[in-house]
Amino acid sequence: MAKITDKIKEYTRPGYYEKFDYHWTMSIDLDRCTGCGACVVACQAENNLPIVGEKRFKERREMKWLRIERYWEGEYPNLKLKFLPMLCQQCDQAPCETPCPVAATYHNQDGLNTQIYNRCIGTRTCAVYCPYEVRYFNWFTYTWDEPLEQQLNPDVTVREKGVMEKCTFCVQRIRMAKDKAKDDNRRRVKDGEVTPACVQSCASEAMQFGDLNDPNSKVSKMTKNKRAYHVLEELNTKPSVVYLQKVEKHD
């Protein structure tokens, strides 16, 4: 009993999250985003996401860990289009983690909101609780036709029907970077050693990825930018994805 109360004290202490080993964070500069969709394709390829096809898409069964949302503003001649790449925000106070009856999704010491596929029993509660709508449920078991299965990434599990999935910040690449750091007898991964697939593929370098606990990392500097904000900040989910506002001309 004393153990449990100690744990509760530790976890509710203010600033607990600053004590994480790492605090993986992504920054997305909306002023640089052109909405090209390279990140979406890169994510699809890296993480063994199925192509669901037109019919399933219409039934809203699409699988995309990263999607580009479009916002139209104004009337026809003065029409403006804005893009917002939306992926799992890896919230520090994630609404999706608490309701899982089997604790298949939890927060790890690196500030990642993880999903353990084989623990998941598919209640879909987490998806309901997620305000960003970035959790995707496998309604079907998808297969890859003959030569295509060769391009599956062996470092990522191929999910089956009945499992919830979402962006992992390419945890397999984080794992590899840590492995390399251990080989070089370093305790920590250097800034820039981990690049998720979407960040790597971004042509305009709108996305940055790194450790927020390291004050000299690129992301840390980005988050101090005046334009930085979180999506749905008022919900107090403390997302790990930081957006930088689009610069607009005001007349």
């Binding site: 790890n108 990642l112 993880t114 353990i116 084989n118 990522v156 945890v171």
Partner: peptide
């Protein structure tokens, strides 16, 4: 270190 964290072994 982190040897009992699920994502250490589960991918």
């Amino acid at each position: 270190e982190n040897g009992r964290d699920c994502v250490t072994c589960h991918k």
